[in-house]
Amino acid sequence: MYRIRFHGRGGQGMKTASRILGSAFFQQGYEVQDAPRYGAERRGAPVFAYVRAARRTIQERGIILEPDLVIVADDSLVPMPAAGVLQGVTPRTVLLISSGETPETWRHRLNIAGPLLTLQAEAAAGAEQHFVGTALAGAAARLVGVITLLALEQAVQLELAGLGGETLSSNLDQALAAYELMAPQAGLVSEGEALAAAAYQRPDWVELPLDEADAAAAAIHAGATSVEVRTGLWRTLRPVIDYQRCNRCWWVCSEFCPDSAIRVNAEHFPEIDYDHCKGCLICVAQCPAHAISAIPESSEAQP
């Protein structure tokens, strides 16, 4: 069975990517399971989706714990423990990261020996609108080595039928180009084995103790603990204040920041809390002095 996990951010089309790959396998005669997973977080937050494909009925359910292929749409997610990109990765797992950096850089950074590939997939708006996920689905189709170009094409057309002419053809181009690009690595991903029952690690079940009611209620006995959640990781664009141009009317950008992520310092300058700024860029739009600009987050510039 093939077990494939897609990691990205809400809005990058991970669900669609998993469905394109799922449909391509299905066109190819495979039994398929595909599903997205998301929690409380919204657009920009880490999400993942997964695909299983096999020549027999798939009985497994839920999250893939030991993937054969991990695809990452946003390289800033890789070092983020909460995103779980590297969860269950073994030396035989193939990693495909959408990144401008080389595989060597990533292999060194992550200190992993297994196969690792990069591909710079980017979203585009306007007439040429396409999603990061479409290219990655095309790349994945080639990496498993059992999906034909025709099956991929049919899958893209099926899954993106609702988007209409230009968008569909733009996405299709992306998928097919990525498929071609991965030709040298065709078949790099192999099917994983099922967990054997003959010898297994016993689950360390415990007797749940009866705890005090106040600890055992879903209640939080503290204030503003949410500051521990680093929503800054959602950001793909970073607002940066040019203090030369800032005229210290901090009440504008600070008041209009939905996330309370702009504070005023002792010199009455606004300061952006990059641990929590989600990158909505309202401050960029509202700054009367045009002193705030948006720059892309690079993978080195983690908050």
Binding site: G39, A40, E41, R42, R43, G44, A45, G223, A224, T225, S226, V227, E228, V229, R230, T231, W234, R235, C249, W250, W251, S254, E255, P258, D259, S260, A261, R263, V264, D273, D275, H276, K278, G279, C280, L281, I282
Partner: peptide
């Protein structure tokens, strides 16, 4: 500029950006 700057509501909520 008369508005309070105390920012009582903690950062880090899961609401959408913007």
């Amino acid at each position: 500029k008369d508005l309070p700057s105390n920012r009582l509501l903690g950062t880090g909520t899961p609401m959408c950006a913007g």
